[in-house]
Design a protein around this nucleic acid. Structure first.
Lengths: 330, 330
DNA sequence: CTGTTAGCGCTTTCAC
DNA sequence: GTGAAAGCGCTAACAG
């Protein structure tokens, strides 16, 4: 890296490159632009050579100010634990970076007055926002980000918003059929945060699916997706254990298993248990819980396609199907 | 929110506020600056009122261009799984946001030519970089970020760099003493990525500590921190099981437990096992593995103190001690 | 295709 | 304490 900026201590600017290449600054701008803009091949080469010689690098702040856009993608989550689905978020992050953009992580958690927080910050100017958090609806988010490039992944979309929806019903129906096939007649349902739209729909899907195959939901216990709340749920269920326990997260299913395990009850001998999410078994092989999941690769591909050309995204959004994954517990 | 920008469709600028308040743009800039700058109280109030009326919000790009700085903190990790320590990263992220800054997540993973990647991006202009990844040394990172505000958390610091060091030796020594106290004479060590400086030091600490208390390390098996590699390690160890197994991560310890469990071997009856990290037991209560950990709160506090006033950070860095946490397995 | 000219919105001299 | 003016580095519009 042999770079000697013309002015000591300062990074070379487009003007420096122009001077060295013997062209106008605008030509440099065009020559270096990723999109094809009218520049003669000869000058373009001179510019490229001069830029390399000077070690020129574009100043994204200046470009952003001029173009009113910036290669930043806001990833909006409730809580860092939302990222724990590594099979989804790690490739997503890598994909965002490979698009030449960067991810700015916004954790809305218990932050009050998110609007004030955002409006003075860079996030207000992001290229696009990926909304995993359900803190706000599509309209609010668009206003919050001063951008129409908002991809709703939280179920809270409106007619104008781009969206990817995980079709949980398909997988849940499959799960119910499977359970029924194994002779399940009664079941308990352990649910997550009631305030979430996604959870609401998920619970409704369980009810519908059970109904459809003739499984009686004899008990509903509310948790918060966590392992701990699963253990508590186990205590509530243990007295009158149904044929199966359905949990709206894998973590809760593991908690229930450990909770019931203390009474000597083990699946699949004593009851069947089903989780939801189908987390990678790497760290949880000891549980090996049957679950419902979706194709992470498809979701990441959809998101990246959106980021590449938001305008060409299907107006009706994209649906990613889920499917039942049979493991040891049910 | 009753805001009517003077020019339709455009956000109000500092000039708009100045006009409405009847002062010069420069006055508005000063009045709105967080640092105390000379403005008469009367005008300051007029400006504040006008800004509120217009719903004015500063454009961070323009400010960044003028001041050559930006309220962005780069968090540099190898892989998203580095964030799985939620007790550390969730408060950290929240703290960064509460400082009015935002976190830009840079995953260096297998990205080649990180320098090119960074130099044209906003991250080049961040306020500070928190380096958890060990992809580069302090000097390289400073060059990469065009900033001296680099906080090394990966052990790869130099004389000039700010750093926080997790003192793993203290906890590991305590662990060894504890094991010895429980009659451990021989042990196997299951290690992580050999390429990491932190891991290298960790392994050395185990060797030293065992030596000091008279535990003989009869076997070393290398893994990659993952649960899966723990299971593989179990296979290698099972033939001649020592009194104890030390693992340089909790995940590997769990893998070893499950692996040996298949042969009917269970801690603490058949052997003792110790992990490292002391991850929150929430999702892993079934294992309840003894481990070594540190005070996450102290680390976050240290990092935030750095971000607040990088200049006042202790020149010698900060040390966070670790300690042994006894649980069921050892 | 090319170069000149205006900005983008803010901060910062520097005279007053 | 105040305001005019000069940038920060880049892109877009407009003549050539």
């Amino acid at each position: 890296m042999i770079e000697k900026p013309p002015r000591a201590g300062k990074r070379p600017t487009i003007a420096d490159v122009a001077r060295l290449a013997g062209v106008a600054p605008a030509i440099v701008s065009r020559a270096l632009s990723p999109s094809r803009r009218p520049v003669s091949l000869e000058k373009k080469e001179r510019v490229l050579k001069a830029a390399a010689e000077l070690g020129y690098h574009q100043n994204p702040l200046a470009r952003g100010l001029a173009t009113k856009s910036i290669d930043l993608v806001a990833v909006i989550i409730n809580h860092l634990s939302d990222l724990s689905d590594l099979d989804l978020f790690d490739p997503l992050l890598e994909g965002i970076q490979s698009l030449g953009k960067q991810a700015i992580l916004i954790r809305v958690g218990r932050t009050k007055r998110i609007d004030d927080f955002l409006r003075n910050s860079l996030s207000y100017h992001v290229h696009a926002a990926l909304v995993f958090s359900d803190f706000a609806g599509a309209g609010e988010v668009r206003a919050l980000f001063h951008s129409d490039n908002v991809l709703m992944l939280n179920g809270r979309f409106d007619a104008e918003s781009a969206r990817i929806r995980i079709d949980e019903e398909s997988g849940i129906a499959e799960l119910a059929r499977h359970a029924r096939g194994r002779g399940v007649g009664t079941a308990a349902l352990v649910t997550g945060r009631a305030s979430s739209l996604v959870e609401e729909a998920r619970v409704a899907a369980y009810r519908t699916a059970c109904n459809a195959v003739g499984i009686r939901l004899v008990r509903e216990v509310s948790g918060d997706y966590s392992y701990g709340s699963g253990r508590e749920a186990a205590a509530a269920i243990a007295g009158a254990l149904p044929d199966a326990v359905f949990c709206t997260s894998d973590s809760m299913a593991m908690g229930v298993m450990d909770g019931l395990g203390r009474d000597g009850l083990r699946p699949p001998a004593d009851y069947l248990i089903y989780g939801f999410d189908a987390v990678d078994r790497g760290n949880f092989a000891a549980y090996d819980v049957s679950s419902v999941g979706f194709d992470r690769t498809a979701l990441v591909a959809g998101i990246l396609a959106y980021l590449k050309v938001p305008g060409e995204f299907p107006a009706t959004g994209i649906d990613i199907p889920t499917r039942f994954i049979a493991r040891a517990t049910g």
